[in-house]
Amino acid sequence: MKRRTLLSSLASIGAVSVAGCIDDTGAGGPGTDEPTTDEPGTTTGDDDGTDTPNGTDDDDDDGSDFNPDEQTEAARFEIGSPEGVAFADNNKPVPVHVRNDADEERDFALQVTRPTPGSSDDLQLRDLGTTTLSADAYVTVVFYVPAEYTLAVEGDGRTLTEHQLDHGDFECNSGFTSITVAEDWSVETGGISTMMACPSPAARTIGVGQGEGQCAEAQDHTATVSYGDEEVSVEGTFITPTPCYSVDVAESGYDDESDVFELVLEATENDVDGCVECVGQVDYEATVGFEADFPAHVSVVHRTNDGDTEVGRATWNADFELGGE
């Protein structure tokens, strides 16, 4: 799902402070993104009629005044490349800034992980090493390829936070995410973004091609799904009562909440005088052309008298490898 809860509206990212932005995950202690709530302080009125929290007119440094254009970037790392990203206008890079909001120099270690291509549960790991940040300086990690990632931030001998990204964080809006580490090593995650309405993935064309049915060599329905430049291809086998059937599209649709496009196929009996008596299989190829954007996932379902069964699924950029610097 494309990220619809945006953090703040602005005309120019570089010219606007982050002060007053809505925090997208809340402030939490070390190693967690869970929000915490401070007890409300007392409010007193000064002679000029201005209310000041907690009886003082000193500005507390809550990490909300971060502006990358006005503070020092100590290092920058890039994950992937902008070259070859499909629907690039709707999948802009996602910069994540890790800021040292302290009065002294401190070290921060960063690691990026993501799923390994294939069916393995192992994770790819890219170690970005340790960066020394002076007071109020920051390090940037830019993610270019729409996919699932975890950015781990370590400091003070422990993991301070693990920031999650997925396909929905890549969209048509421009902005950044900030991970601010306070003097006591607590973490606040926030950011800023423009507020354009981004188009959702939509199927432009759907086509199904197939050969003649034949007696089945197996009993299982199958489908292999793969992403192309602006289309998704499916190669599948539909098991039928006899070989004299054709595969057609029953229905299709995109669910914004799960970011899944579902293609439902069914087999209909051909109008023929006679057919060989055997369980059949129909091999087919289907192509779905998309406009505006790709869905994060594509599911292929075969509909039979026994109900609907998912026989194939693919995730966009599932084969992306983190690589090195």
Rank of each mutant, 00 (worst) to 15 (best):
E291V: 11
F290P: 11
D259L: 07
A292G: 07
V288M: 13
E257D: 14
V282S: 01
T287M: 15
L265G: 00
D259E: 15
L265D: 02
L263V: 03
L263Q: 08
A286W: 02
D259M: 00
E269S: 08
D271T: 03
A292E: 15
D273K: 04
D255H: 14
C278F: 06
L263H: 02
A292S: 15
E285P: 00
C275N: 02
C275H: 09
G289C: 13
T268D: 04
C278M: 09
E277D: 14
Y254M: 05
C275P: 10
F290A: 05
E266S: 06
Q281M: 13
C278P: 01
E285N: 15
G253N: 05
Y284P: 06
T268P: 05
T268H: 01
E277P: 02
V288I: 15
T268K: 04
T287E: 12
E277K: 10
E262R: 15
V272Q: 04
L265W: 09
D256T: 04
A267E: 02
D255P: 03
E266K: 02
Y284K: 06
V276G: 04
V282F: 00
F290W: 14
L263G: 04
A267K: 09
Y284H: 07
G280W: 00
Y284N: 08
D255Y: 02
E291I: 12
D273I: 02
Y284C: 07
T287N: 11
C275I: 06
S258P: 11
G253F: 11
E266Q: 01
D259A: 09
A267C: 08
G280H: 08
G280S: 09
D273S: 13
A286K: 09
E291H: 05
Y254D: 10
D271K: 10
A267R: 07
N270T: 09
E269P: 05
G280P: 06
F261V: 03
A292F: 13
